[in-house]
Design a binder for these strands. Structure first.
Lengths: 345, 345
DNA sequence: GAAACGCTTGGAAACGTTTCCATAATATTA
DNA sequence: TAATATTATGGAAACGTTTCCAAGCGTTTC
């Protein structure tokens, strides 16, 4: 096959020629510059339409201007969790005619934060960081560089930077309180990765609720996980093996809750009659699982959308102050929680 | 805050200067060009490391060369289905030092295929098209342009083009046969969007199995859906309302199967005792749902990985013939299917 | 020992934009 | 009506690379 050229390689030059104006004018039309006469604008626009002109974004980006692409740095794509956030980001981006460039860091060594920051430079106008493991590495560099970014689901340690998160503490507090009011006194807790702010906040919320309701905190009831399903299974098993096992288990996210459910069922116990189980996140399958999982809803998609809005705001309006917002979490009661039955002995 | 420059804006020029060579030489070092003396190469490389040089990809792309970014065109991010594929793509891409640019078409009008093709040009070295609604629009343009691409889960209508899919027909055939062997005679079928090849193939597989086993095809038992959950509910309801309702329902994907499950339960019927249900895809939540869903596993992640490999192959080796591969599907029997109970009258 | 060759390197053009500066044309003011 | 302010446009430099061409230089070959 003869090697034809990609669709039609029409550049600003051809447009200018055909419209009988200079390059500068065509560029100005494209960028909605004020200083161009209405009829000129119309004529040029017509030619552009007619020739099917599409700006070459490489060239545009090269000359130090915006690329209309924003970058998303995500740990990986394995969990539905990231997918939900991405969905929100994508939706909002669509509204503003931006495109999305996705970088996953799962393969990138920790120390490469600088490399990433460099790499990304020039390719994207701004960066959305989802749940970075080592946020300080990034935030320092990016702040210094005055490069627009927003943190998602992480309240960057130390220095103030734009971020959107959820009320993790409050959500965990409310959920724990709900279990207590149901009558549970021994409530197991499976934590997330404790290097993540969200995990810490959830644990704190749990502890605070116990304290307020005068239930002594039992270290045995706290199992340290890392947000993955196997931890839920392991944690559930460990908790049930206790001499005085909990009547309810609160996992720091839904997939661990599902792991714990398997552990419970594996021991021939019923959910929720024998053991109540409660999650965090409200990922889509939580409603589908049987019994449907009671959980703390985190507005993931909304978080994605909001962060995107904030970033675009920053882009349009560089001198704005930095925002940090926390979206409310919400307890979703389904079928996996119940009052504990009276236990003899 | 003083506006510092992004990390350190070190260009090829500075590197050349510091290393005491010309621009061309530095470029040659970066691109592993043969014609550069070992010691020169070493010296330049050292300087690059030392200065933390990272190539500006815009500039590189501009001069007609590769960008090391590949584009993914996906309908949307709403379903876990796409997520799985993306996961595979991302994994493979990581191995080859490529980055990923994601374009979602849900917002883009059908007719804009040309626009997209143009837009993408220059930004990415190749394109992965996931389940395009109107593949012909793209494939024609891209083929003409000699632009590398691979279709995922769509056997591009008409002209031959690189594609990876799954054995949809065989999967549906096997699943239907399995139900028949269980003793089912009236098997309801909920189709996907019939403008998609995969949906057509699945329906055909179902029909063929019936035919081979001498079960008459009943148009009433076929409900046309569009791959979304509400269709599953509606389809399930419609099928159960038949005078002679099916004892098993086979949905063209898992989310519709779950919709159908709700419809079944809503009528007070039990799964699988009263009605068996079978899905397609094996998305993660299928194993989690209760009862766990019997389904036809599509190796989504693997498809993503393979397509990516094929694309990278094409990039490195432009004159290769075009490959089309179908990955095998596999029936996963779980708890949602059972022999029909004997029905009196 | 000279010619031819091959390898390494420097230099410069080119990629398609944006943006700044200058100039021409037009409108406003005194 | 002349002087001035304003607006519309053209021209050219700049962005950071790649790549082509040619030149330098050391080796081989006759």
């Amino acid at each position: 096959m003869a090697k034809k050229d990609v669709p039609s390689k029409v550049t600003i030059v051809e447009v200018a020629e055909k419209a009988g104006v200079s390059l500068g004018t065509v560029s100005r039309v494209m960028n909605n510059d004020i200083h161009v006469a209405p009829d000129t604008r119309e004529r040029v626009a017509a030619v552009m339409r007619e020739m099917g002109y599409v700006a070459n974004r490489q060239a545009r980006g090269l000359k130090g201007s915006r690329t209309n692409v924003i970058g998303v740095l995500a740990p990986d794509l394995g969990t539905g969790y990231i997918g939900e956030i991405l969905h929100g980001i994508d939706t909002e981006l669509g509204l503003h005619q931006f495109d999305l460039m996705l970088f996953t860091t799962h393969r990138t060594a920790i120390k490469e934060a600088n490399y990433v920051a460099n790499l990304v430079k020039g390719m994207v106008d701004g960066l959305l960081l989802i749940l970075p493991r080592n946020p300080a590495d990034y935030t320092g560099i990016l702040t210094n560089a005055n490069f627009p970014f927003v943190l998602i689901d992480h309240q960057g340690t130390g220095s103030l930077c734009p971020a959107v998160g959820a009320t993790n503490w409050q959500g965990a507090y409310n959920a724990t309180e709900y279990l207590i009011k149901l009558g549970h006194k021994r409530i197991g807790f499976i934590t997330g990765s404790m290097d993540l702010g969200a995990a810490i906040d959830r644990l704190d919320g749990y502890k605070s609720a116990l304290q307020v309701h005068h239930i002594p905190e039992d270290p045995q009831l706290i199992y340290e996980g890392t947000f993955f399903q196997p931890d839920g299974y392991a944690g559930g098993s460990a908790l049930l093996d206790l001499d005085d096992p909990p009547t309810a288990i609160f996992a720091s996210n839904d997939v661990m809750a599902m792991g714990a459910m398997d552990a419970i069922r594996g021991r021939g116990l019923r959910i929720p009659e024998d053991v109540s189980i409660l999650g965090f996140d409200d990922i889509p399958q939580s409603a589908m699982v049987r019994p449907a999982l009671t959980t703390v809803r985190q507005p993931l998609e909304h978080m994605g959308r909001l962060a995107t809005q904030m970033l675009i705001d920053q882009l349009k309006n560089p001198e704005k102050g930095i925002d940090r917002v926390e979206l409310p979490t919400q307890l979703i009661v389904r079928d996996s929680t119940l009052s504990p039955k009276d236990r003899a002995g």
